[in-house]
Each structure stands twice: as structure tokens, then as C-alpha cells.
Amino acid sequence: MEIILSAAIGILSASGIWLVLRPRSFQVVIGLCLLSYAVNLFIFSTGRLTPGAPPIMPKGGFIDPTLYADPVPQALVLTAIVISFATTALFLVVMIASRGMTGTDHVDGKERSQQ
């Protein structure tokens, strides 16, 4: 399982990095989304893989922390998901505004040949 998940993180991040380095703004948006999946999964994986033990506690009684998934990475990733939605929205709006103003979807607002 660990090998599969780390390979998944690797492929997601490689695709994300490649897209982030591309010249078209839509590619960069998609790349950032993929990269955020990769990073969220990475942070999540620092809590190790624990199938079938969500951090939902019984009401009272003794609690053995080793029986539950680590809640800290989960809490970190949860807000990250919502924030990455917001940044995607912001980037998208900047992108379409830039397309409207410059007439090109190159990230620099001008084609390479015009530089």
C-alpha cells in the first residue's frame, strides 16, 4: 500500500510540476490543482496509513492513541483543501481577466515571439 500511495504522490506531483512549468495559463491552473492533491496526500501520509480506524472517539473511557489514525495531518489537510479551492478560484479569475486584457493565454501576457 505504501508503495502504491507514494508512487501516486510521485505521479501527481510530477504531472503537477510539469504543468506548472508550461506556458499556458490553463495548464498552470490544472497543474496547481494536481500539485495540491499531491501535497495534501503527502501531508496526510505523514500520519502513516491506518485503514479502518477513523479518529472518532468513544464517549469516555480509556483511549489508546495507537488504535486510531493520527488526527493532526487530517486537520491540516482539511483546511488546505478549502483554501486550495479559493486559490484556484483566484487564479482562474486572474487568468480570464488577463486573457481578456492581453488577447493571449500565455502566462506572461504576451507570446514568446513578441518578447
Partner: peptide, 25 residues
Amino acid sequence: AVAGGLGLASIAFALMTRPLIDNVG
């Protein structure tokens, strides 16, 4: 991109295969 992906994957693997130490969680 491949270098970055490989790097992140190997860090993730190294992390996941180590036992979890006691933490604030």
C-alpha cells in the same frame, strides 16, 4: 518534473515506512 516527482515519492515512502512516534496527535 520527473526528478521532483521521484523525490517527493521517495520522501513519502521513507516517511510512511517508519513507525509513528508519539506526537501531539
